[in-house]
Lab assay of single mutants.
Amino acid sequence: MQIFVKTLTGKTITLEVEPSDTIENVKAKIQDKEGIPPDQQRLIFAGKQLEDGRTLSDYNIQKESTLHLVLR
């Protein structure tokens, strides 16, 4: 499924993921596309910060959901 990741600069990254993918996994995909190390990434969905060990389905993230990427 496709999800979108919006950065603070207003750029939107499109990722191909599975509901069973972990947040860690998603961060690795963002690193592949954008070169941002996962340890600098914070992903936010519905106002919650997403934890590395959880999966997209844990957070009920469905196709075409938009996550927000904050760098630390």
Rank of each mutant, 00 (worst) to 15 (best):
I3C: 02
I23R: 01
D21C: 02
D58Y: 07
I30E: 00
E51F: 14
D32E: 05
S65N: 13
E24K: 12
P38Y: 11
K6W: 07
S20I: 10
Q31A: 04
S65I: 06
K48N: 10
F4N: 04
G10Y: 05
D52N: 07
Q41N: 03
Q31C: 02
S65F: 07
V5S: 01
G47A: 04
I44T: 12
Q62H: 10
K48F: 07
Q40K: 04
T12R: 05
T66K: 10
R54E: 10
T9M: 10
L8F: 14
Y59P: 00
D32S: 11
P38D: 09
E64N: 10
Q62I: 08
Q49R: 13
R54H: 08
K27N: 02
T9Q: 11
K6C: 03
I23V: 15
A28N: 11
I30W: 01
L56I: 15
D21G: 15
G35I: 04
P38K: 11
E34A: 09
K33A: 11
G47E: 08
A28Q: 13
P19K: 15
A46L: 06
F45K: 05
T14P: 12
I44P: 00
L15S: 00
T66G: 03
T55A: 10
L69F: 03
E34L: 07
E51V: 06
G10R: 05
K6G: 11
D58G: 05
F4A: 04
Q2Y: 11
F45S: 13
R42I: 15
V5T: 02
I13T: 15
S57A: 04
L56D: 00
E51K: 06
E24I: 09
E18H: 11
G35Q: 06
I13F: 09
Q62W: 07
E64R: 14
D58T: 11
V70S: 05
Q49M: 05
Q31V: 07
Q41Y: 06
D39L: 10
N25F: 15
P37D: 10
L15M: 14
R42K: 13
T66E: 08
L43Q: 00
L8S: 10
V17P: 01
L69Q: 03
R72M: 09
G35V: 03
S65E: 12
K27W: 03
I23A: 05
L71R: 12
K29A: 14
R72Y: 10
I23M: 15
Q41A: 09
S57C: 03
Q40C: 02
K27T: 03
Q62Y: 11
S57K: 07
V26D: 00
A28I: 11
A46P: 01
V70E: 08
K63S: 05
G10D: 06
L43R: 00
K6D: 14
D39M: 06
Q62M: 06
T12Q: 07
D52A: 07
Q31D: 12
F4D: 02
L56R: 00
D52V: 08
I30Y: 03
I13A: 03
D21M: 05
L8I: 08
F45P: 00
T66C: 02
G47I: 02
N25G: 15
T9G: 07
K6M: 10
D52P: 09
N25A: 10
N60F: 15
M1S: 11
P38F: 08
V70D: 04
I44H: 12
S20E: 13
T12E: 07
D39Y: 10
K63M: 15
I23G: 03
Q62P: 09
R54Y: 14
E18G: 11
R54K: 13
D21A: 05
I3Y: 01
E64Y: 10
D52K: 14
L8N: 15
E24H: 12
F45Q: 05
L8G: 05
G47P: 01
K27I: 03
L67Y: 01
S65T: 11
E51C: 03
L15C: 02
F45V: 11
T9V: 07
V70W: 12
Q2M: 14
V26S: 01
S20L: 05
N25V: 11
T12W: 14
I30V: 12
V70N: 08
E64F: 11
I61F: 02
S65Q: 13
H68D: 13
R54W: 15
N60I: 11
F4Q: 05
E16D: 13
Q31F: 11
L67E: 01
N60S: 06
R72A: 04
F45G: 04
E16L: 10
L69V: 11
V5G: 01
D39T: 05
L71K: 13
R42T: 06
H68C: 03
S65M: 14
E51Y: 06
D58L: 06
T12N: 07
I36F: 13
G35E: 04
S57P: 05
D32L: 13
T14N: 09
L43G: 00
G35P: 07
S57M: 04
P38C: 02
G10L: 14
I44N: 12
L71T: 05
E34N: 06
K33F: 12
M1T: 11
N60K: 09
D39S: 08
T7R: 04
K29Y: 09
E34G: 07
L56H: 00
T22W: 04
L50V: 12
A28R: 10
Q40M: 13
Q2I: 07
Q2L: 14
G47T: 12
P38V: 13
G53C: 03
E64A: 05
T14V: 12
K63D: 10
T55W: 13
K63T: 14
P37S: 13
K11Q: 12
T22L: 04
T22K: 08
K29H: 11
P19D: 08
D58A: 04
L69N: 01
A46W: 12
P19N: 04
I3E: 00
K33W: 06
L43I: 08
L8P: 12
L15E: 00
G10H: 05
I36T: 06
V17Y: 06
L69A: 03
T66F: 07
T7N: 04
F4I: 06
R42E: 08
E34W: 13
G35H: 05
Y59H: 15
T22A: 07
R54D: 04
P38A: 09
T55K: 07
K33L: 09
K27E: 01
P19I: 09
T7P: 12
S20V: 15
